[in-house]
């Protein structure tokens, strides 16, 4: 879906990749004109990395151009933090499009731990979004971009309700 600015932003996130083959004259993607040696580790945007990691070098070879590494935002540290403090963790500090990036990543790879931890976190954080939209008490919870959009939507509905109630009484 390219109609959502969030998705464009997500596909532009850089993820670490390792080159499986030596590619001559591809240096321009890192700012020079030289050959990229096999084994080079580069951070590529997700849209490019995703393609290169699924396309085979030639028809009968198993090798793909690059292999994807796990991005730092899904490191065990972050997952443990999300598991132990699903509500207070600042997702935007990890990545402004954390949830979306995770959804993209899970489409490409099996990563049950991330899926399970994020599942619980989404449940609890959506209650938090509701609370903050009903009454802005305390510090604003740390939302990532998709959560912020959802918050704005819910807050708009609540504000409309409050205005209507005030008018009716």
């Amino acid at each position: 879906m390219y109609y959502d600015i969030n998705d464009i932003e997500t596909e532009g996130q850089r993820v670490p990749t390792t080159f499986n083959v030596t590619v001559p004259h591809l240096g321009h993607i890192v700012g020079n004109t030289e050959t990229i040696e096999s084994g080079t580790v580069l951070e590529l945007p997700l849209w490019l990395a995703g393609q290169l990691s699924t396309v085979q070098v030639d028809n009968d070879a198993e090798t793909t151009f690059v292999s994807l590494e796990e991005p730092a935002v899904f490191s065990p540290d972050v997952i443990n933090a999300l598991k132990s403090a699903p509500v207070s963790l600042d997702l935007a500090e990890q990545s402004t499009v954390f949830t979306n990036l995770a959804l993209h990543w899970l489409q490409m790879f099996d990563f049950p731990e991330l899926a399970n931890v994020l599942y619980d976190a989404v449940q609890q954080r959506s209650a938090e979004i509701y609370d903050y939209a009903v009454a802005q008490r305390g510090a604003q919870p740390q939302f990532d971009e998709s959560e912020r959009q959802l918050y704005r939507l819910v807050h708009g509905v609540m504000r409309n309700m409050r205005a209507w109630q005030a008018f009716g009484q």
Binding site: T99, A115, L118, Y119, V122, Q123, S146, V157
Partner: peptide, 19 residues
Amino acid sequence: LNEVRPLMSKTMATLQKLH
């Protein structure tokens, strides 16, 4: 219902993708 509908539908959509 109207108050929770947007939150519910979007949250459930995300959960479904994660599932």
